[in-house]
């Protein structure tokens, strides 16, 4: 075994890349759940975003257009969920599961002509002096723009929920939709918008996998990342910065165990493969032992008549 083969700079830099898909999907789902909606279709929206982004990026040659298309695709699929749960008042758990299955099927249909193609490369941030700094330069300034975008979204969501009136209304809707309705707030409109934001974020997360992380298209390539994002939100106690922490922890252990596998550590591969899930859940369970709790109206169907 040769641990010296593991380069800490590369390790940190690649964990940020590995974490970005679940970070984006997780922060989107966090907003959805804070509005009181449980959308289990994250996986389906991610994979749909992955193929929409991939197809548009390949056809236009522009990764930027690809990411925009991924956000639109994810949001469009989430609109279906919004229609089912907010207008037709269907059960959220069943609708979410259906959305995942539908997204997986739809994406393989859309992706038939795209297997084995290489997408255009997504640009990296290159700042002349800073990016060349030893150690920190590679970690802080050498990534593609989506990594920074993911962190920015976390910061914006945090500030939105904490400081703005719209954020307060969103939290109020998630806490008690009846009380929010009695005060005259449009519960359904708020929730539909939150669901679409969640869909767009999940789509971006999926496209990051197909355009940057892998980068190519294969069926079912999100491989459960949407479920990890869902679990992340719960174990992060619905707090934005904890989603970031959880995502980086998960990404970090994932990258580290791959490195350890490559270095030939004398632990069966199966144990290494399960370690990111175990460690992330363990840490976040310990952290969520404080008094924080789920939004009170989470998963409950709102009907305006009273």
């Amino acid at each position: 075994m040769d641990l010296s083969a593991i380069n800490p700079v590369l390790l940190i830099a690649s964990l940020m890349v590995a974490a970005t898909p679940i970070l984006l999907a997780g922060i989107g789902e966090l907003v959805v759940e804070r509005a009181g909606v449980l959308n289990l279709g994250v996986e389906g929206m991610m994979i749909t975003g992955a193929i929409c982004g991939f197809a548009i990026a390949v056809n236009t040659g522009s990764p930027f257009a690809g990411f925009v298309a991924a956000a639109v695709g994810g949001a469009a699929l989430s609109l279906l969920f919004a229609l089912l749960t907010q207008v037709a008042l269907a059960n959220q758990v069943a609708s979410g599961l259906a959305l995942t299955l539908f997204g997986l099927g739809l994406s393989s249909l859309l992706g038939q002509g795209y297997v084995g193609i290489k997408p255009p490369a997504t640009g990296r941030l290159e700042i002349p002096v800073l990016s060349d700094l030893p150690f920190v330069g590679r970690i802080l300034f050498g990534h593609d723009l989506m990594v920074y975008f993911g962190i920015a979204v976390v910061a914006v969501v945090w500030a939105f929920l904490k400081f703005t009136r719209a954020g307060l209304i969103l939290r109020a809707v998630g806490e008690s939709h009846d009380a929010a309705h009695a005060l005259g707030y449009k519960v359904k409109r708020v929730r539909v918008m939150a669901i679409m934001f969640g869909g767009a974020c999940a789509g971006l997360g999926g496209a990051y996998i197909s355009l940057v992380r892998v980068p190519q298209w294969t069926e079912g390539m999100t491989a459960g990342a949407g479920w990890i994002a869902l679990a992340l939100v719960v174990f992060a106690s619905w707090k934005p910065w904890r989603v970031l922490l959880g995502a980086y922890l998960f990404g970090g252990v994932t990258v580290l165990q791959l490195n350890l596998q490559a270095a030939g550590l004398a632990i069966p591969v199966e144990y290494l493969s399960m370690s990111p899930y175990l460690i992330t859940i363990l840490v976040l369970v310990i952290m969520s032992a404080d008094k924080s709790r789920a939004p009170a109206s989470l998963g409950r169907i709102f009907h305006a008549s009273q």
Binding site: I169, A172, E175, A180, A296
Partner: peptide, 20 residues
């Protein structure tokens, strides 16, 4: 003032009032 209070348990007093 409602019979069944239209308040949000997880929010503080000022936030509840701002919502109204």
């Amino acid at each position: 003032v409602f019979q069944h209070f239209s308040l949000f348990d997880a929010l503080n007093v000022a936030e509840n009032i701002a919502l109204g």
